[in-house]
Simulated scan of single mutants.
Amino acid sequence: MKRSISILIISMLLLGLAGCASNKQESSGQKQVQLQNINLGLMPDVDSIPFIIAQEKGYFKEEGLTVTLKHFKSAMERDSALQSGNLDGAVSDMLAEAFAKAGGFDTVITSLTTGSYKLVVNKDEKAASIQDLKGKDVAISKNTIIDYVTDKVVTEGGLTSADINKVVIPQIPARLEMLQNGKIAAATLPDPLATIAVKNGAKVIKTSEQLGLNPGVLLFTTKAVKEKEKEIQAMYRAYSKAVDYLSREPMDNYIDLLIEKGGFPKDVKGVLVLPQYKKAAAPQQKDVDDVVAWLQARQLIQKKYLYTDLVDTRFVR
């Protein structure tokens, strides 16, 4: 009898241990759900820095995510990669989102990014205000955030868009080179390239921050939003970690990394001033409406898109 009871107890213990092992395996399996890769397009501007930090500091890996960062020198190259299916998302702007919708390509804005744009004049140019640029060459990339910011700066300074001669130079490095070689009077540039221009003698006329403009965004294809929702959520958690890192670490601790991995010019070392990065948030409706109105006024889009047509707020507060 005692032997039978002992066998029964041992059997129950073994079953219990087997059950615990099974539960641990199930729990482990749930934690190890394989996330899909994300292909993300970056531009040579400060908006892209948190993504570079998240990659190089291992924050994406901490979230179980693999992100491939692809670098582009112009908005046209970036948008072509998006439309060809080579990217899931990209550092972009509200104008590009509206153009995508108008062209039948389905993307959505998922959050703002933190950028900085400056209208600068070359070192030999005597212009000290917007008024002094009347009739002069100003380099831009046409129908982009650069064009939009330029118009806002010019209007705020008392001129119209027609009062300056816009010279279209899509690639940002080429725009900087022409400015520094004195081939154009002025240019609108994103940081860090605007910082390079100033270091080499250019003068700032006005910045996007001074006008309260923040049209830079992160956008994803609707296909990616539907099929990679968990991946995008993980990406934003990593992004938040990168923002925390940038808020507490001196730039000396990562500037070499940005030069090496981000393709930033070596000249930014010691002079680059970064914006105050914020956790990802949705754009304000007024800012989206202003961009849509600007595009319609120039007959670049026909439809008056609503905020909900262009923005998906599920990933941010």
Rank of each mutant, 00 (worst) to 15 (best):
V217R: 08
A194K: 07
L246C: 05
K230G: 00
I184Q: 07
L295A: 13
Y239H: 15
K226V: 05
L274S: 15
R248V: 10
K261P: 12
A281D: 05
Q233F: 05
I232Q: 07
L176M: 03
P283T: 01
L272E: 01
V204N: 12
P275R: 15
Y305G: 00
Q276P: 10
E227V: 04
L306K: 12
A185R: 05
T195L: 01
Q285C: 06
K199C: 11
I301P: 03
K279S: 09
G262C: 11
I232D: 00
A224Y: 04
I184V: 14
F220E: 09
E177G: 05
E231W: 03
G262I: 14
A185G: 05
K269P: 05
A187W: 08
Q276M: 14
V271W: 07
V225N: 00
S208A: 13
L246K: 12
K206W: 03
K228V: 06
A242I: 05
I184R: 03
Y239A: 13
L257N: 10
L257V: 14
V291K: 01
K230T: 02
E231V: 09
M251S: 15
I196Y: 00
I196H: 02
L274A: 12
L272R: 00
I196A: 04
K303A: 04
Q285I: 04
A194T: 02
L300E: 09
L274W: 13
G182L: 06
Y254H: 04
R175M: 04
A197I: 07
L306I: 04
S240P: 04
M251W: 08
N181D: 15
P265A: 00
V268K: 07
A186T: 02
L218R: 14
G263K: 01
K278A: 13
I301F: 03
E229N: 11
L257R: 13
Q276F: 13
F264H: 02
L213H: 06
D244A: 15
T188C: 14
V288I: 09
I184H: 08
L246H: 10
G182F: 08
A185H: 11
Q284S: 14
T222L: 02
V291D: 00
K266W: 01
G182V: 05
P265T: 06
K304P: 01
L219K: 10
T188F: 12
G216C: 08
T207H: 14
K278I: 04
M178W: 05
G212M: 07
K303T: 14
I196M: 02
K183V: 11
K199H: 09
L295P: 06
R248S: 13
V271M: 07
S247K: 15
G270K: 05
I232C: 05
Q180M: 13
D289Y: 06
I301Q: 01
M178P: 00
P265I: 00
A194W: 01
M178Q: 07
Y239K: 11
P283D: 00
G270Y: 11
L246G: 02
V243F: 10
L193S: 02
K304C: 01
K241A: 10
V288H: 09
D289V: 02
L213W: 09
V271T: 12
L176D: 03
L193K: 08
K286L: 11
K269E: 13
K230W: 04
S247Q: 15
E177I: 06
L213N: 11
T195P: 02
F220W: 08
E209H: 09
K230V: 03
V204H: 14
D256M: 03
